[in-house]
Structures are given as structure tokens and as C-alpha cells.
């Protein structure tokens, strides 16, 4: 019986932050991707056993304060503020894509604030032979092809419905503003962290050795947005990290294979 997450707001130094929270027990934090995925079957299943926290990053949805965050360095300090506001010491942290990159940055700098680390399709590295596909200014329909193994997924369907929107305001498109504006807002926040350097920190790779938390890297086998080498490099560079590959899932893996992810996470947390 999945436990649903409830919305609440907390105060942080950059402003009011939206949070989804549910369950009781040991804490578990999820950092969402640029898609702003604040809920999934995995999170609701985990909330049966634990207290799950999903802080919404500034600039996404209803969280404030993005104008005070200029780069990943600021993002890491913001996470520390969120941890403190929630009374978290060293919770297990799972992140997807952008959120996984953020979790890795936190874990390299403040290893004692991350109890366990789960990186799902993590960006953050630059690998010359394995370029990450373009995120900004692409047709959402094209992105859906790369990010979903199964195009009938509801979110993939929404992205296909928005196919004409590439951020070109000179082109007349019949897409409701209430769909376009939140996407523009989320991508604007993402741009602050990942426009240049493009979705990576050139210094991150050499710092991965600093991570002390038990680490699980999960890759969607059908992810064509992010080449396999990225998850493989994380798994190789973080001491003792394990790599799992999930079939039938692409980049937005928790939306496609929530049960499989729940199983991997539960096993990992039981015996890290």
C-alpha cells in the first residue's frame, strides 16, 4: 500500500522551498531531475518503510530563490541549508540526472552529510567520447524519444503533445501557456547550473574519490540521452560503487520502472 507524499513549505536562506514529504522512520531524500519529477511509484513505496523527503529545487514549481543560486557550488550550499532546516544529519540520498549530479557534488564536498548515495542516470561528467545530447532548445517530442523506452508513458505523451515548442517565440504554436511556462521556468533554473559548462563540472571526476558513502549507480538500458559511459565512469571512480542496469527504461527511469527501482533501492539500503 503506497504512502502518498504531502506538500509542505520550509524556510531556507534563499527563500521558501516547496517540499513533498511522507511516511515515518529513517529518512530518505530524493533530488529530482530537470523534468521536475517530484513523485513516483518508487518514492511512494519507499515511504511505506521510511520518511521520504523530496525538496523542490529553487526555480522549479513553487520553490523560490533561484536568483540567489548561480552555479552548482551554490546548489550544494542550498542542499546543506535544506538538510539543516529538516534536521537531517546524513540521510541516504537518491538523485535522478541533474539531481544525481547535485547529490554527487554534495557527497564529494561533505561526505559526512550523505549516508548512502544512489545515482540514477547521473549527468555531471564530461566524457569526450560520450557526449550528452542537447537539452536546451530541443523539441520535447525529440527529447521524449531519448528519455523514454516506452513512448506510451503519460509524461512522454505530454512531451509529444508539446513537440512544436522549441522555445522559438516567432513560431506560432497551439500549445497552452500553462504547459509551456512551467517548462521554460524549470529549464531556466537548469540553465543556471548546466548551460556552461554543459551539464558537467570539469572538476567533479577527480573529486569522486572523496565520496565515502556506499554508492549505487543505476542506468536505464535504453537511455539514449546520456551514454552508458557516464554511469560506468561514476561506478568506476567512486570507491566500492555498484552499477545496476535496468532493462525497459531510458533516462527518466523512475517514471518507467518504479518497481524495479524500488527493489534495487530497498536491497541496497538493507545491505549497502
Amino acid at each position: 500500500m503506497p504512502t502518498s507524499l504531502e506538500q509542505q513549505f520550509i524556510e531556507t536562506p534563499v527563500g521558501k522551498v516547496q517540499l513533498f514529504r511522507g511516511g515515518t522512520g529513517e529518512p530518505f531524500v530524493y533530488l529530482h531531475s530537470a523534468a521536475g519529477d517530484t513523485t513516483s511509484g518508487t518514492l511512494e513505496a519507499l515511504a511505506d518503510e521510511r520518511e521520504v523527503f523530496v525538496p523542490v529545487f529553487p526555480g522549479f514549481n513553487e520553490s523560490e530563490g533561484i536568483e540567489q543560486i548561480d552555479d552548482m557550488e551554490d546548489a550544494v550550499f542550498h542542499l546543506l541549508d535544506v538538510w539543516d532546516a529538516l534536521g537531517l544529519d546524513a540521510p541516504p540520498v537518491m538523485g535522478l540526472s541533474l539531481g544525481a549530479w547535485m547529490a554527487a557534488e554534495l557527497a564529494t564536498r561533505y561526505p559526512d552529510r550523505v549516508g548512502a548515495l544512489i545515482l540514477v542516470n547521473p549527468v555531471g561528467l564530461y566524457l569526450p567520447d560520450a557526449p550528452v545530447q542537447e537539452l536546451f532548445g530541443r523539441s520535447p517530442g525529440e527529447l521524449a524519444e531519448e528519455m523514454f523506452a516506452d513512448q506510451s508513458n503519460p509524461m512522454a505523451q505530454v512531451m509529444h503533445a508539446m513537440s512544436d515548442w522549441v522555445g522559438d517565440v516567432g513560431q506560432q504554436v497551439e500549445i497552452p501557456l500553462e504547459l509551456v511556462l512551467p517548462v521554460y521556468k524549470s529549464l531556466s533554473a537548469t540553465a543556471k547550473l548546466g548551460w556552461d559548462p554543459y551539464l558537467h563540472n570539469p572538476r567533479l571526476r577527480k573529486r569522486l574519490r572523496r565520496i565515502t558513502a556506499p554508492t549505487l549507480v543505476v542506468r536505464g538500458a535504453q537511455d539514449t540521452f546520456l551514454p552508458a559511459a557516464h554511469a560506468e565512469t561514476y561506478a568506476a571512480e567512486v570507491s566500492g560503487a555498484r552499477l545496476e542496469v535496468v532493462e525497459g527504461a531510458a533516462h527518466l527511469l523512475p517514471l518507467e520502472k518504479p518497481e524495479e527501482l524500488t527493489r534495487l533501492v530497498t536491497q541496497f539500503l538493507a545491505a549497502p
Binding site: 536546451f136 522555445g167 522559438d168 517565440v169 513560431q171 506560432q172 501557456l177 511556462l181 521554460y184 543556471k192
Partner: peptide, 22 residues
């Protein structure tokens, strides 16, 4: 291609105005 608006280039409020004239 001239009117591509990369994310963050304009405020959400301005984008809304601009899109109405698109």
C-alpha cells in the same frame, strides 16, 4: 531560428507577453 528564446533569457512574465504576440 531568429526568435529562439533559450531558457532564462527572458522572465516567465515577459515570455507570456511575447508568446501572445508570437
Amino acid at each position: 531560428g531568429i526568435t529562439i528564446q533559450p531558457p532564462g533569457y527572458t522572465s516567465v512574465r515577459s515570455l507570456e507577453n511575447i508568446l501572445k504576440g508570437a
